[in-house]
Design a protein around this nucleic acid. Structure first.
Length: 192
DNA sequence: CGAGAGATCCTCT
DNA sequence: GAGGATCTCTCGT
């Protein structure tokens, strides 16, 4: 498995969201290494996407990394959870891809230890779950995705990819209906 | 099994 | 001081 280089991320955000499916997301910590294949993503299109944190080019300390070049980590704390995004778009375009679900590959024992004794599919089938299973924390914010401790490699080629409306953004007007969610068709680790 | 509410924390107004 | 790109448990059927 080869680490994906920065040029991989410099494709249109919707293409990147599709391309990331099947790639392997890896996190190294003191406790060990855990990784999974990405099976579900959502694209957030910055200025023209009411559901994005960077809507209307809102530039703050939190969204700052999205204005930089593609291939960096954008983490966001939500209630008791942490969510992870891949920064996309050219420098100046605040776009990102949210990773919503992964399929466990390595470090499964570690995931059980972090998540508790659950069914395997409940380890990583949601954006807040996978970050806890892999040990991704807000301190990963701003890191580069082609170097440890958090990085992405090539994985497998999904048989079929599905596309549909995003999830969990009810107050976003018509942006709610944009078909910017992608997942591996039939994969049991997809969140819905 | 579907609906609903609480958890609990960071960011921006 | 409000609210959010969520998760989990509880309650009622």
């Amino acid at each position: 498995m080869d680490i994906l280089h920065k040029d991989f991320y410099t494709q249109p955000t919707l293409d990147l969201a599709r391309s990331l499916l099947g790639c392997q997301l890896i996190k190294e910590t003191d406790e060990g290494t855990a990784s999974g294949y990405i099976v579900e993503t959502e694209a957030y299109m910055g200025p023209r996407d009411r559901a994005a944190h960077s809507f209307n080019n809102l530039r703050t300390k939190r969204t700052e990394v999205m204005f930089g070049p593609a291939g960096y980590v954008y983490t966001y704390v939500m209630h008791t959870h942490c969510l992870v995004n891949v920064v996309s778009g050219y420098t100046g375009d605040p776009e990102a891809v949210l990773i919503r679900a992964v399929e466990p590959v390595t470090g499964v024992d570690l995931m059980y230890k972090r998540r508790g004794d659950k069914k395997e599919k409940d380890l990583t089938n949601g954006p807040g779950k996978l970050t806890k299973a892999l040990g991704i924390i807000k301190d990963d914010y701003g890191g580069s995705l082609d170097t440890p401790p958090l990085y992405i490699t090539s994985g497998y080629q999904p048989d079929n990819i599905s596309q549909g409306e995003r999830i969990g953004i009810g107050n976003s007007g018509e942006a709610r209906t944009y078909p910017w969610r992608f997942w591996v068709t039939g994969n049991k680790f997809v969140s819905r």
